[in-house]
């Protein structure tokens, strides 16, 4: 039996077990917590285990997951977009409250990046640009940046906790990505970037970062 056949069989088996009364199904809140990566891991695993065996719950999870991911991607994208447009925004003197708030949050980081020392890895590694190693963040989100790798199809930025769990992840074809303050949270973190090419992957060194909010 091939992978494809096994997947077909699994799809048939799970769709053939209708559960109209939704007995034992996790609540919408539990599915939402899974989609948002909130709550204890064992609970999210139990919810996922059920959802992937229950056609109704899987469809509900997919709706929440798609919205959650779109929200995450859009929030990150708009932050990066605003950062590059900042001089124009200031020149025009726009009074949009949301835009002004974002610029205020990202402003200090734009200034800090100018004095960032680039940590150089091996010639074939992904080179990280900003923030610098052991940066301490006390307010706002962060824009992470790195050097372009020739022939890279896309980059994956991962911000990890000291225990190795992923706190935030971005996939982009650009060489920077923004993470909001809410997503960064607090504590000792590490970040790394992976470049994907047609012939394989390149990894950056890992940099430390501390988020300590008053």
């Amino acid at each position: 039996m091939s992978d494809e056949k096994l997947r077909e069989l699994y799809a048939r088996a799970t769709s053939a077990r209708p559960n109209p009364r939704r007995v034992d199904c996790p609540t919408p809140e539990a599915l939402e917590a899974l989609a948002k990566r909130e709550g204890p891991e064992d609970q999210r695993l139990a919810t996922l285990d059920h959802a992937m065996a229950c056609a109704d719950c899987r469809q509900e999870l997919e709706l929440l997951r798609a919205i959650e991911q779109a929200g995450r991607a859009e929030t990150g994208a708009s932050a990066v977009h605003t950062r590059w447009r900042r001089p124009i925004v200031l020149a025009l003197g726009t009074a949009l409250a949301a835009g002004a708030a974002l610029v205020a949050v990202l402003g200090p980081w734009s200034a800090r990046q100018d004095s960032t020392v680039v940590m150089r890895g091996a010639a074939t590694d992904v080179r990280l640009a900003a923030p610098a190693a052991d940066t301490v963040v006390s307010a706002g989100g962060l824009t992470f940046s790195w050097r372009s790798v020739p022939d890279a199809r896309r980059y994956t930025l991962e911000v990890l906790t000291s225990a190795g769990a992923v706190r935030a992840r971005r996939e982009t074809t650009d060489t920077s990505a923004a993470i909001s303050a809410a997503e960064l949270g607090t504590g000792d973190l590490r970040w790394t970037v992976r470049a994907e090419m047609n012939g394989g992957e390149l990894h950056s060194p890992t940099r430390r970062l501390r988020v300590s909010r008053p």
Partner: peptide, 15 residues
């Protein structure tokens, strides 16, 4: 169910 490894990592917040 048809999800790829990176989608699993994304949903669970794993490396």
């Amino acid at each position: 169910s048809g999800y790829e490894r990176d989608e699993i990592a994304e949903l669970m917040g794993w490396s």
